[in-house]
Design a protein around this nucleic acid. Structure first.
Length: 265
DNA sequence: AATTGCTACAACCGCTGTGTT
DNA sequence: TAACACAGCGGTTGTAGCAAT
């Protein structure tokens, strides 16, 4: 079996879609659905590759697409989700009904990155880290208080609107500084290479790390409840992408019963 | 009015994950 | 189990439109 090229270069159109093409695609999908994108253009009579049709439908023609500018609330949500999820645009889009990953990615690169940069210039370079730590601090507090997610800030406004009151690294006078260790690499517990390689190999082989004593330590020593994102960072040194590791680490730690699941935004 | 530079966004490209044979 | 097809994802590019000069 020989794999066919993704796109037949010969005779297939590229570039901006015309309104006629849009209409053909809409009519076809409304009538037959889009079971097989690869076969769709031929059946619909379009000189496009399936990939192009899929992108056009998902990013532009789908009836549930929300057009127009992003609201301030949506922008805040993107910023905060981006802090937690990184460049996982589809995951972010899943939390914003009617918005596509492509659209969110564009908005991020054209507006929000700048907005965030200006904001951090005004509030200090560690603002994002503080906000992130504050979020996880509240997760930890909530778990300690009630074992529920009831008090976790689930809207961006709840945990970003009062950034001015967030903690400062090394500010011993700040009573709110409940999570200094998560912010200060110097206080982050030492974890030897064996731990991370063992965790990685255990999970990649399909296993679940539930006995941390077997791989080098007690999860409490890692302060996992306070800072799962910090805990991910050492993995970078082993060639993994930090953001792609997000699900991996949450799986590891939540299944180990150490932190609650992230709230559903 | 013409030119240049910038911004926003649609679309493409290459890669990865998953299901199927 | 390997090879493949396909869908989906994220990075990048191309270009239209606008503002500044």
């Amino acid at each position: 079996m020989v794999r066919a090229p993704c796109c037949e270069k010969m005779g297939l159109k590229k570039g901006p879609w015309t309104s006629e093409e849009d209409q053909i695609l809409i009519n076809y999908i409304q009538q037959y659905g889009h079971g097989n994108w690869r076969a769709l253009p031929k059946q619909a009579g379009l000189l496009r590759c399936g990939k192009s049709c899929r992108l056009r439908w998902i990013n532009y023609l789908r009836p549930d697409i929300k057009r127009g500018n992003f609201s301030r609330e949506e922008e805040d949500t993107i910023i905060n989700l981006h802090e937690m999820l990184g460049n996982r645009w589809s995951a972010i889009a899943a939390k914003l009904p009617g918005r596509t990953d492509n659209e969110i990615k564009n908005v991020w690169h054209t507006h929000l990155k700048k907005r965030l940069k200006h904001h951090e210039e005004a509030t200090g370079p560690a603002a994002a880290t503080k906000r992130r730590s504050k979020y996880y601090d509240q997760v930890a507090k909530s778990q300690a208080n009630s074992d529920s997610l009831e008090h976790i800030p689930v809207s961006p406004q709840e945990y970003s609107s009062d950034m001015s009151s967030t903690v400062t690294i090394g500010d011993d006078n700040n009573d709110n500084d409940t999570c200094p260790k998560a912010e200060s690499p110097g206080n982050f517990p030492e974890v030897d290479e064996d731990f991370w390689s063992e965790v990685l190999s255990t999970e990649s082989s399909g296993g679940v790390v539930s006995d941390f004593s077997a791989v080098g330590g007690d999860p409490h020593e890692l302060q996992v409840p306070f800072s799962p994102l910090m805990a991910m960072e050492p993995v970078n040194g082993y060639g993994s992408n930090m953001h792609d590791s997000m699900d991996f680490w949450f799986n590891v730690f939540t299944r180990a019963g150490e932190i609650p699941e992230l709230p559903d935004f």
